[in-house]
Design a binder for these strands. Structure first.
Lengths: 155, 155
DNA sequence: GGTGAAGTGGGAGATAGTGGGGACTACTCT
DNA sequence: AGAGTAGTCCCCACTATCTCCCACTTCACC
C-alpha cells in the first residue's frame, strides 16, 4: 500500500510538464509501474491515483447501482474526466489542459500526499482553501487522527 | 514498543542537520530501522515518530473516508506537513526547512522524549511555553492526568 | 591521561528540478 | 494525397540541493 505524504510545489514548463516529486515517487509501489490515472477532484483540484490504487477505485465504482439516478451521476462525472498518465524519462507528467483548466492550475502545481492518492492544486487556490480552515478546525483534526476513538465521518 | 524519555539539546548545522540524541537512539526499536516520520505538532513544535509507531497513525488515517469533506480536510492537513526522515551515517537527521520554519526552530533543537514519540522544539520557544505554565497549573494537570479517572479533555 | 563514543563541520559526488532542442506522430486544411 | 501544424516524447544541459564520506573536537568513562 502506498502512503503518500508531504507537500511539494513545482513549476509547470511551457509544454505543460511538471516534475513528479521525488519523494512521492519513492512511495510508489512497483505495481504502479509509474503509471497513473488523474481525475477531477471534489474541490478545485485534481486527484492522481497510481495505477494499482486506481484498481480499488474502479472496484468501488463498479459497486455503484447504475439504476439509481444518484449512482449514474456519481459514476458518470467521475469517470468522464479521467485520464491515464505516465512519467516520462525525466520523471515528469504532462497535465492535460482540460484538467488544469478545471483546477485553475497555472504556472505552478502543488502536490499533496493524501495517503493512497495525490492531490494536485494551484498554489493560490490552495491558499484560499487554507484560509477557510481556522485553528480550531486544525486542532480538531489532530484529535480525530490521534485519538483512540474511531473517526467520526459525519459531515 | 519504544519509550523515549529525557531532554537533549543539539545544535543544527548550516545544512539543517542535527545529531539524533544517542540515548534516544538506544530506545529505538529495531523495527524502526532508523527511519522516522516527522509532522507538525499541535504546539509550535514537531513530532517525530519512529517508523514502527507511525504505522499506527497510518492505520488510523486509512480509516478516514476520503469521500467526505471532513475526512479529506483531516487527512490533507495532517499528511501535508508530514515527511519521512532517516538517520545518516553520523546518526543525524536533516530537518526539512518548512517544518523548522513552522516550529520556529533556529540554530538549536531540543528533543523531548514523549514515550511513543519525540517532540522537537526550539529552545527559546520551549522556554516560553514553560513560562506560560505556572506551578499551580502544573500541579493540577498532573493530578488530572495521573488519576485513574478518565481525563476530561474539554478545553 | 588514554580510549572510544558522541557531536560538529565541510568537500565532493549524486540526484532532483528546470529548461530547451529536435525527432516522430497524428491530425487538418488545402 | 501532400504539406503544414500541433502535440508528444526523448535527449541533452545547467543548476541547486541533498547525501555520503572523511576529519576534527569534545566529552565521558574507564
Amino acid at each position: 500500500m502506498p502512503s503518500f505524504k508531504g507537500q511539494y510545489e513545482h513549476s509547470i514548463d511551457a509544454k505543460g510538464r511538471v516534475a513528479f516529486p521525488a519523494k512521492l515517487r519513492k512511495s510508489l509501489s512497483p505495481d504502479a509501474q509509474e503509471r497513473f490515472t488523474i481525475v477531477r477532484g471534489q474541490e478545485p483540484c485534481l486527484y492522481l491515483y497510481p495505477e494499482d490504487e486506481w484498481q480499488n477505485v474502479e472496484q468501488k465504482l463498479s459497486q455503484i447501482n447504475n439504476f439509481t439516478k444518484k449512482g449514474r451521476l456519481a459514476k458518470r462525472n467521475f469517470l468522464r474526466y479521467a485520464e491515464d498518465l505516465s512519467l516520462d524519462k525525466q520523471n515528469r507528467i504532462a497535465l492535460p489542459s482540460d484538467l488544469t483548466e478545471y483546477a485553475q492550475i497555472n504556472g505552478k502545481a502543488v502536490f499533496l500526499g493524501m495517503g493512497e492518492y495525490i492531490e494536485v492544486w494551484d498554489p493560490e487556490i490552495l491558499a484560499e482553501a487554507d484560509e477557510a480552515l481556522d485553528d480550531d478546525a486544525f486542532e480538531e483534526i489532530f484529535e480525530q487522527v490521534m485519538s483512540d476513538e474511531p473517526v467520526n465521518e459525519g459531515d
